[in-house]
Amino acid sequence: MIAHICNDLGGWGKGFVVAISRRWPQPERDYRDWHRHRAGNDFALGATRLVRVTPDVWVANMVGQRGIRTGSGGPPIRYDAVERCLTSLADQAQALGASVHMPRIGCGLAGGTWNRMEPVIERTLCARHRRDGVRPRVTAPRTGSRSRWDAAPGGRSRSHPQREASDAQGHRT
């Protein structure tokens, strides 16, 4: 699974989603349709929707951003919504036997900080990994101090040794 944050306005076209759309058109089409028909579905902050793009790869569109601009209410990121998204994603990943891969969600255009986002990931995906085997992997370059989720030098992602052993067992992405 490849997880990323979406806004609640139906806007798609900047940041990480550009790379997703270049590779697979389905996630953008599904997100726009999900938003267009929101009166009759679950589209809202905190909702997660999986889009299958290959037989063993899903993209998780997670609505964790209110609007697209920083204003009087602060940055667009909504950590509580992201926590609900990641909790749901952990359930779905476990059901599919999938690992979860993501950029540093919420820390780009959404205006969030890694110091606030990392504990959310720890409480949801990482706690689930320790308990049920859901394997998160955050891979993206960043500046400043490193955490265990940072990309290693040379573009390779660093991960926990237990996840390396799990990944070698052939689990789906």
Rank of each mutant, 00 (worst) to 15 (best):
V63K: 02
P75F: 05
T87V: 13
L96T: 07
G71T: 12
T70N: 04
R172V: 10
R66M: 04
G71L: 12
D30K: 08
G71D: 15
S21L: 03
T48S: 12
G154N: 11
S21A: 15
N7R: 11
V82T: 09
T54W: 06
R32N: 05
I2D: 01
L89K: 01
W24E: 04
L50N: 00
A81I: 03
R148Y: 05
M117A: 09
T54A: 15
G71K: 10
H101F: 10
D167M: 13
G71C: 13
E122Y: 05
R29F: 13
L45D: 02
R36P: 04
A98H: 13
G106L: 01
G40Q: 12
V100H: 02
T139F: 07
L96R: 15
R156L: 10
L45Y: 02
A90V: 06
G144W: 12
S21H: 14
G40W: 06
R36L: 08
S72Q: 14
R66F: 04
P119W: 05
R146V: 10
T54I: 09
A44F: 04
V17R: 00
Q26T: 02
T113V: 11
G108S: 13
G40F: 07
H171I: 15
R23A: 15
A39N: 13
A3D: 03
A165G: 00
V134C: 03
R29V: 14
W58E: 09
S72W: 12
N41L: 13
H4E: 12
R84L: 12
P141C: 03
I121M: 09
D30Q: 11
R128H: 12
E122W: 03
W12Y: 15
